[in-house]
Design a protein around this nucleic acid. Sequence first.
DNA 1: CTGTTTATTGTCCCATTGGTCAATTCTTGA
DNA 2: TCAAGAATTGACCAATGGGACAATAAACAG
Lengths: 200, 200
Amino acid sequence: MKLKRLGDIRRKELRQAAFAVLEREGIAGATLEKVAAHAGASKGIVLHYFRNKQELFEHAMREANAVLCNAVVARLRQARTPIERLDAVIEGNFEEHLFLPPLCHAWLSLCAEVPRDEKLARIQKVIHGRMRSNLLSGLRGLTSVADADDIALGVTALIDGLWLRLGLQPGSVSREQAIRQVKGYVSARLAGQERPATGA
Amino acid sequence: MKLKRLGDIRRKELRQAAFAVLEREGIAGATLEKVAAHAGASKGIVLHYFRNKQELFEHAMREANAVLCNAVVARLRQARTPIERLDAVIEGNFEEHLFLPPLCHAWLSLCAEVPRDEKLARIQKVIHGRMRSNLLSGLRGLTSVADADDIALGVTALIDGLWLRLGLQPGSVSREQAIRQVKGYVSARLAGQERPATGA
DNA sequence: CTGTTTATTGTCCCATTGGTCAATTCTTGA
DNA sequence: TCAAGAATTGACCAATGGGACAATAAACAG
């Protein structure tokens, strides 16, 4: 196994520090100085490893996403049936050590900047695309293509919404509640797909 | 009808300007100067009517919420049956002139500050509480209390999630799609309530 | 008409911030 | 051992932002 170059280590430390500061301070309060302090370094070092503030936080978003993504992928690897794959995605998105208010706060701050940062937008798009395709890998075979698409959209929205709720009112949604909620949604949709929806 | 005092007019102009700036610039880029410029006034006037920046944006959030709330209330007034009340809430939350990316962007920026602003948190809580109670006014009578609570949580989360999607990828969700999605959710949950959910 | 309150502006101030840079220390390969 | 390159720091800078304030203009009450 190849040893890590010092630069890579620093970069990782710094983007983690950036994310940590984001959790506490939000995008407006997340300054280079604070990030440096949190990493136990000087401001200069931050700009030595990242061209500018934007780039730093773009990497912070990638980092955070990778963590969440790994949780899902790990579960996905052990899933055999479509239902198991579905559950893997759902449960992975609410893993105990991830489904926490601070993480959500940081994520929210980054999402709020998406409209003004092309790179962030691209990252966001990739993230969402992967979540969607993970879901579809389970939903195919359980229902028609059109319904699968529709349900996948619903599930992603529901998951995002539950995360948001956690961030806005910590404690109002438990991990178990969230999982039950999403699973309930999926099973209800799958069971009722042949019935038309309510009124216009 | 009593004439409005000048102060009230100014205050309204300013908090609307604040919201408009928020749409474009996000919380980090929304400066007093820009708000003043957008309202065609000087920075001084902003701090004449609002104690500080925080207070200004708190009022901006109240303002924006009132608009969205009115849309729902107007529809709610014409609803007679529980189903109609439910649809009123759902459709009101995706009204054509409201379900727009810029509005969502501003909303996101404000939500991202909730964890660091007690007042914003309170406002958010009230908003969510009202949405929930509006939903429950429809759901009661259609299902048990426990299920109503559960479905109400799901609906609010789903609505939030769809808004988020709109903000992060404008054009990826249409108003009609969103409405269909939420209505489909409700009807599926109501139809399948006697059936247990999928695996653990 | 006049004194008082209210609205509004522009200026000033100080703290902060992102970013640059030269100087210094640390690594490391030859 | 030593020179070249990388890492790291701290000083510095220009720009900006929030907020205070005094001065002026407008509205208004008596």
